[in-house]
């Protein structure tokens, strides 16, 4: 074999070994991190530390507390935002009222559309206590300058509730 190709192949194998070696060390840690992160976000939405979450499928959890089944947490995604996907977790109680909503991923304009994110503004808290029966046009406070973003979030929550 041409010695240069041999060198190239040998170095490629070394690089591959290094990558798979570190992958072996970090794989479980990374998976743990990701699971903990999504669980932490779901807990924030439920706003009840004693509640137990029972997974239904990838996007839905049942909330169980001492009284038994008490609402559920589900994930909704919308594309009607200003820029790309907005992913939300919505938690409801047994009567169909919203416990809480959290945006977990979005790429709205920083400084304008990011008010849907909890640390940035408490806009998202207004959904707590709202149910599908409320009039969504009157009761939700849309924000001028970020109309598209806030409307997309509200509509996604409303449609998620309806399901």
């Amino acid at each position: 074999m041409n010695p240069r190709i041999f060198t190239l192949v040998l170095l490629a194998m070394l690089c591959g070994l290094a990558v798979s070696g570190l992958n072996g060390v970090t794989r479980e840690k990374i998976r743990d991190n990701q699971e903990q992160f999504s669980l932490l976000q779901i807990k924030q939405v439920v706003q009840d530390d004693r509640a137990v979450l029972e997974q239904v499928d990838e996007h839905r959890f049942l909330i169980k507390d001492e009284l038994g089944e008490n609402g559920m947490v589900f994930r909704v995604t919308t594309l009607s935002g200003y820029n790309g996907e907005i992913i939300l977790w919505v938690a409801t109680d047994g009567e169909g009222k919203i416990r809480g909503v959290r945006v977990i991923e979005h790429s709205e304009t920083p400084g304008i559309g990011d008010l849907i994110e909890r640390p940035v503004s408490d806009w998202i808290d207004q959904f707590s206590g709202v149910s599908a029966e409320n009039s969504w046009d009157d009761d939700v406070d849309y924000v001028s300058g970020a109309t598209i973003t806030t409307r997309a979030v509200a509509r996604a929550v409303q449609e998620g509730l309806a399901q």
Partner: peptide
């Protein structure tokens, strides 16, 4: 070599500075 070191750094960050 560059791609390998970047991948290693990326995995290390994911594991320890998530």
């Amino acid at each position: 070599v560059i791609a390998t070191s970047v991948t290693l750094a990326d995995m290390a960050l994911q594991a320890w500075y998530f």
